[in-house]
Design a protein around this nucleic acid. Structure first.
Lengths: 217, 217
DNA sequence: CGGGCGGTTGAGGTCAATCAATCAGAGTGG
DNA sequence: CCACTCTGATTGATTGACCTCAACCGCCCG
């Protein structure tokens, strides 16, 4: 991993979310690169930084004692993550592939009331997503989970046509509360139904998004 | 439903959470009573108020088109709820039984930077709880779900010995992503194992909380 | 060409859902 | 006080969606 100048990052940055909350990040944040599966932080670490994804993607991981794994969220380019209530991390964050992040010390952030308000909005956005996730995990079937996952991903990557899955089948399974085999089977089923088209294991096209959305009700 | 003076409510209020975020609520909030299953607000309503539970309890409900129901959260005495990012409610809120709430107009809240900071902390607390919920729904078995649910409830009601379940079996099922039959069976199993003692359907005692906690890992 | 890793496919098992009957408690009316 | 009813909870039998275990495939890279 290597440090880059901020300006270099800005210019090389792929799709940034255009939201006003971008301004939360101070101009003096450092950029940092991470390799595949590299930890940004671990469960239990001091929560003294917040991060913004410039390129690549990150997963938030929680583990049960016996090794069962749940991914709480994926963070895509433009997303801010790492804001916590307490002193300590309650989940690990790991890069999915080659990933570049902006890093800001937590202390430098909520100084002004303006900043506070924006952080608050970020927290609420995460909360919304987490609540949607609860509905999916609590009440949806495997194919409904996959459908809502793919639609959400397509929207966040604002993919007009095809897009690339930033994560492995195992990551998808651990996000959706399924096994890797069920993800694979369900995906081939969706493909057979003409709702998904895979070209290569990670390249996805959603030919009938409306039909997919119907699956999610 | 009837209005009460704030002072009357304050004095009659059961366990208030002692957290600093209590001060978020302006002194000039109105109290309002709700009956069993009465809606505080519905999905899609304008999100112009926030609420604090004085007594009773509230459930946050989301519905799929075919009627499947997921309870996102239960709000107990002392809890604040109803803070939303957008203009509209994304879930309904319904009283579990006779319930008294403090109501504050949203506009009157985040005025000062102090208040903003406190609302932000509230949002983060909800986020934490929601993330825990995701782990439970994604990766835990029925008995683990019940165990963590009961422990969480006992702690929030700070029940030293016995406590009363504010919600029905159906509500528990819809919170834990199970069916009412599975909740019932699992509860009797936990009782057979000596981890739970039920006296009447809603009166619960947890004789070995440590053993229950072990179940949750 | 061979080995390794991630993904897919298949066969069989399991946990929780479904369908259905019974039970317990609260309220009602005779 | 005792049927009767209504609602919510429990229990039982069976089914089914997803998991587990295992083999196989395809691609990349040495």
């Amino acid at each position: 991993m290597q440090a880059h100048s901020l300006s270099a990052m800005r210019t090389s940055a792929p799709p940034f979310a255009p939201g006003a909350e971008d301004d939360v990040f101070p101009l003096i944040s450092a950029a940092k690169s991470f390799g595949r599966d590299q930890a940004v932080y671990d469960d239990g670490d001091a929560a003294d930084c917040v991060y913004k994804v410039v390129s690549g993607a990150v997963r938030a991981v929680r583990l049960l004692a016996d090794g069962r794994r749940q991914i709480g969220e994926f963070y895509l380019p433009g997303d801010v993550f790492g804001v916590e209530l307490g002193e300590r991390r309650r989940a690990a964050a790991e890069a999915l592939g080659e990933t570049v992040l902006l890093v800001a010390r937590r202390a430098s952030l909520p100084a002004g009331p303006e900043q506070g308000g924006r952080l608050w909005r970020l927290a609420l956005r995460d909360l919304q997503r987490s609540q949607d996730h609860v509905l999916t995990l609590g009440r949806r079937t495997a194919s409904e989970r996959l459908a809502s996952f793919l639609l959400d991903l397509a929207e966040r990557l604002d993919a007009t046509g095809e897009f690339e899955l930033p994560m492995s089948r195992q990551d998808i399974a651990d996000y959706l509360g399924l096994t890797i085999e069920t993800v694979s089977r369900t995906l081939t089923q969706l493909q057979a139904d003409g709702l998904v088209r895979l070209s290569g294991v990670r390249r996805v096209r959603l030919p009938r998004p409306a039909a997919l959305a119907e699956l999610c009700e």
